[in-house]
Computed example of a mutant assay.
Amino acid sequence: MTQNDATRPAIRCNSVWQVFGSGARDHLDKALAQTGHDPEAAAQSLRGLRLVPAVQDATFDVQSGELFVIMGLSGSGKSTLIRCISRLIEATGGEILIDGDNILEASKSRMTELRRGKLGMVFQHFGLFPHMTVAENVAFPLKMQGRAKADRVERAHEVLELVGLAGREKAYPRELSGGQRQRVGIARSLAANPDIWFLDEPFSALDPLIRRQLQDEFVEIQARLKKSIVFITHDIAEALKIADRIAIMRDGKIVQIGTPAEIVLNPVDDYVREFSKDVAKGRHARVQSVMRPVNGVIPDGPALRQDMTLEAALATCIAKYAPVPVHDAGGNLIGTVDPSDLASALQAEDP
């Protein structure tokens, strides 16, 4: 049964492979046939031929309006995978469906049409034209579409206001900070109002403070626009902060896909567990991830919401307890501490 527009994912990847080396496609087909389509055995066979299976049998959906993060260490295959999905490089095998159409079979003219209208891209290096003003950089995709100048200018002003750069339309890239240049890159990718947005480590070159600020702004923009997004990062804190779901890659393979709470609370192996070992789990997991069904007895106590973080829920529960004494090293009473103050001191601000 064919999925209709309402239920069809924005992106569907079916057994996507990217193999580097001479004759990769023929060797991949042969390896899969010889191993009964066993991805691990096929990859091992390819390595024996001195080929590099950079992406192995990647299968997942990105739902309409979902922010899907792909993360992993350097060399895990995450950037190669997003380049396959956006067809900046040709995947060796599998299917990549965008709105139901297999883009691996699309003509060059069709891909140009998609990139000018439906697909937006932001990369780590800003790629701005130094001889163009901010507004001209942002309006450039619209110029390529043949839109009228007045229309281009109006749209450039709209998206620059959206990313917090109203008033800088006439500035040149050299006059902007790194964070401002990245905002211009984001605005340019939004100018054509794409349905699907690819971002490859867009904030990794920025200072930590600017990076956190842009993450916050990015989350706010997504809350308003509800784009279908594939976002690449190597930073687990960034992934947990912005993602609806996360795919973690290792050696070209996707090893786990889940919500931030699932990744933190239920890692599938030591590799995933290592990513999240220093994460304050209470900041990302919600009450609904640990609650149990009511078994007939309605408990007394503070009312919690299922969407509260574990930190916030714990602070609410602790607030009902009375202050406790504090002693010095000699056992002398020197003060008291309220459990709620302990919880407040440990609780992070909601992102």
Rank of each mutant, 00 (worst) to 15 (best):
V122G: 03
A24G: 07
K277T: 10
G21W: 01
K226R: 14
G252T: 07
M111D: 08
F129H: 01
A135N: 04
Q44S: 14
P202G: 03
M308V: 04
R152M: 02
A223C: 08
Q145M: 09
L206M: 01
E113K: 06
H131D: 02
Q18L: 13
Q213P: 03
K227Y: 13
L342G: 13
Q180F: 02
P141R: 07
Q288K: 15
E90S: 10
K241D: 00
A303M: 14
L142H: 03
N295C: 08
K281Y: 08
S228G: 10
M71N: 11
G65Y: 00
G21E: 03
Q182T: 09
G252F: 05
D38L: 09
R152C: 09
D38I: 05
R168D: 01
S64C: 06
A223K: 15
D61M: 11
K118G: 06
R292G: 00
V290T: 10
G93T: 04
P293N: 06
G178A: 03
P173L: 03
A156W: 08
R286W: 00
A31W: 00
G72W: 02
F20K: 14
A139K: 07
S22M: 01
A322F: 10
Y271E: 07
L342I: 15
L32Q: 10
R181L: 02
S45T: 12
L240P: 01
I248L: 05
Q222T: 11
S76L: 01
R183N: 12
K108Q: 14
R245K: 14
E95P: 03
S22R: 11
K149M: 11
D5L: 11
V272Q: 09
Q347K: 14
R250T: 04
R155V: 11
M1C: 09
M308Y: 08
S79G: 05
L304V: 09
G179Y: 02
L128F: 01
F231R: 06
A33L: 14
G100S: 07
A166M: 00
N137Q: 08
W197S: 04
P9V: 12
R168W: 06
H327D: 05
L165G: 08
T35P: 08
A313G: 04
R147E: 01
H234V: 09
H37E: 15
W17D: 13
V184P: 11
I221P: 09
N14K: 13
I98V: 14
